[in-house]
Simulated scan of single mutants.
Amino acid sequence: MSPSSAATSPTAGPGVPTSPAAAPKPVSWAFAEDFAAEGDAAAQARVETGPLGVEPLSRGTVSTLTFLAQAVQARAVVEIGTGTGQSGLALFAGMQRDGILTSVDLEADHQRQARKAFSSLGIASQRFRLIAGDALTVLPKLSDGAYDLVLVAGDTLEYADYVAQGLRLLRHGGLLVMTHVLWHDTVADPANDDDETLSVRSALEAVTENEDLVASLLPVGDGLLVAVKR
Results as ranks from 00 to 15, higher is better:
D194L: 13
D134L: 06
L52F: 07
V187W: 05
A21W: 04
V187S: 08
T137A: 14
V187A: 08
V47F: 05
T11C: 00
E55W: 03
A206M: 11
I131H: 07
T11N: 12
V150P: 08
P51F: 05
T102P: 06
E209S: 15
A32P: 02
L139S: 06
R46S: 11
L151C: 11
V200W: 01
G166F: 06
V54A: 02
V72I: 13
A74E: 01
A206F: 01
L121D: 12
A30M: 07
T8V: 14
S63L: 00
L106E: 06
Y147H: 15
H110W: 00
L176F: 13
Q70E: 14
A215C: 11
G173N: 11
A146S: 15
A164Y: 03
A45H: 06
V27Q: 10
R168I: 06
A124E: 15
E38G: 00
T66M: 06
E48Q: 13
G154F: 09
S19A: 14
P20M: 11
E205D: 14
T18R: 15
Q113A: 11
G122I: 09
Y162R: 03
L106G: 14
V62A: 15
T11S: 07
D98C: 03
L65K: 08
A227P: 07
L198I: 09
V181N: 05
G133K: 11
F31N: 05
S202Q: 12
E107Y: 08
L157M: 13
S199Y: 04
K141N: 10
R112C: 02
S4F: 12
G154D: 07
E158A: 15
L52R: 07
A203S: 03
K116V: 02
L157W: 01
G223M: 07
I100S: 00
G145P: 02
S87Y: 02
V54H: 05
L176A: 05
P10L: 07
T64K: 01
